[in-house]
Design a protein around this nucleic acid. Structure first.
Lengths: 193, 193
DNA sequence: CTTAATAGTTTCGAGTCGAAACTAATAATG
DNA sequence: CATTATTAGTTTCGACTCGAAACTATTAAG
């Protein structure tokens, strides 16, 4: 079956990516899941930089997530900061050390070289097809999408498109924020908006 | 950069696949790496069903691999069998219990459904592009390819193509064996054969 | 005001994982 | 042929993942 072949290939490529994460992380005492957490925190918006957001993204229970976050904090890669309005919520901020680290180590060099060896048209096609598959998978699972704000059903463009707003919180978004990952993200439904 | 986007997508899809492995495996007390080992053993040929082969495939050290194999043996999913010619080598055979299990659980149902939601042409294209990327990655890494025999540079078709042979061991291969994963596999070089 | 729901933490036991030290068997070399 | 690699696997160690379950604290709902 074709789906089996695609599953095998995705699994294998994912393993190679994880292996590279393992190698590049080992010098800093980090394991692959730590790398993923740091990357997520560097790309998510201010509603999503919490232990709950991290846990949903990496697909772990809150207990496991809490422990991984503690390890990262102990090693000096992030700092916790209480939410000003809700006493239960904790925000996670990357330290400068963490920012430098992920900037340098992602995407993994070998993987990037291999992608560079593809024809430009093939790269675009591959990227598009993977994205299509991911959206299908998430829609079907009722799963959390973790898309960026400007592809969200709640995203609102005011006036000439130079000011943005989140329809869920009614808060304004900067241009930069509209490209960040949000845990409340939902793609527009198939039929209509 | 495009390679970063592709890396993120592959990583994310790989995680979802691993999550499904985790769920389907948990009932049997297996973790994702166990599922991968069982699948590898069900698809590899008689030169590759050893701890060393497993370790190369999953990208772990031999110490780690040895431990995972012991867990699987203890749980009754595989049996060790010494090699007849070389006293150092151990062959790993799946039990009937293991065969049944992997037959039922792969590919993960949700992933397969999502793939089924793509247009047939897109499925084919995606499969081909992923395969291309994997070959590029492995060629560049001098990595082990783990391809199937009939795509190997050492594979020989005798006469009318109804008998096959491995040029490395000079042993005959059955039709079925020519579709199995081999750790000695090498793709034909780019220029010439 | 009481009850539920939400956000996080802590503890437990089984397992991963790399590193390093180890045994045993085969291959290479002088 | 005896010595010295090399190869295949195992074992032990410490740090960490991971799910499950019990826990605290805060906010929301009835």
């Amino acid at each position: 079956m074709e789906s089996q072949r695609i599953a095998s290939l995705v699994e294998r490529l994912g393993n190679l990516l994880r292996s590279e994460d393992r190698v590049t992380g080992s010098g800093a005492g980090l394991v692959p899941i730590h790398m993923q957490i740091l990357r997520y925190l560097s790309a998510c918006n201010r509603y999503s930089d919490t232990p709950a957001g991290v846990g949903e993204f990496v697909g772990a229970t809150k207990g496991t997530t809490s422990q991984s976050i503690n390890v990262l904090e102990r090693k000096g890669y992030l700092k916790k900061r209480p939410d000003k309005e809700d006493g239960r919520i904790v925000h996670l901020g990357l330290t400068a050390k963490a920012e430098r680290f992920i900037e340098k180590e992602f995407p993994p060099a070998e993987f990037a070289d291999a992608v560079a060896g593809m024809r430009p048209g093939d790269r675009k096609r591959l990227s598009g097809l993977l994205n299509e598959l991911l959206i299908l998978l998430q829609r079907q699972n009722e799963g959390i999408a973790f898309g960026v704000c400007n592809t969200c059903r709640y995203f609102k463009r005011d006036g000439l498109g130079d000011t943005h707003q989140c329809g869920l919180t009614s808060e304004p978004l900067t241009e930069q924020e509209s490209f960040m990952i949000c845990r409340e993200h939902e793609y527009p439904s198939e039929k209509a908006v």
